[in-house]
Amino acid sequence: MALDQSFVGRTYPPTEPYEVGREKIREFAEAVGDANPAYTDTEAAKALGHPDVIAPPTFVFSITFKAAGEVVEDPQLGLDYSRVVHGDQRFAYVRPVRAGDRLTVTSTIEAIKSMAGNDILDIRGEVHDEAGEHVVTAWTKLVARAAEEA
């Protein structure tokens, strides 16, 4: 079933702040096998000009995708999440996410398309820090595959 086009442009309220912990960054860096010292060593991060350890580029997805869950699970939108696959992902960074950040995400539905029975949903997540400064924008394209004929 095609999704309701009137949801295009809808913006959801900002999330509660997510506090970025240095041990969470370390856990993520270890999980992707990345030994870059900027993720774990404050002095190494400072030598690169950062005030504290920074997070790997894709770390913020865990935060924006959780926020996008509000869109995905909006009963009025009616997306069948069991059929959803991740189509595209893109980030534009103002600065890297770093330990101690308290980040909020504001999600907006940018586009809804229907192609060959698949529903395609583009969600933009604007990430801001506690001071209200823009940190990064994440664009997530989700594809809900067409249901098989019964």
Partner: peptide, 26 residues
């Protein structure tokens, strides 16, 4: 996979904070 792919870039430049944009299609 997206996290691994960007390591080719971040290992090359040293500072992961120098990544301005990054996007992929799965």
């Amino acid at each position: 996979t997206m996290a691994e792919a960007i390591r080719v870039v971040t290992d090359w430049i040293g500072d992961p904070g120098a990544v301005v944009e990054y996007g992929v299609r799965f």
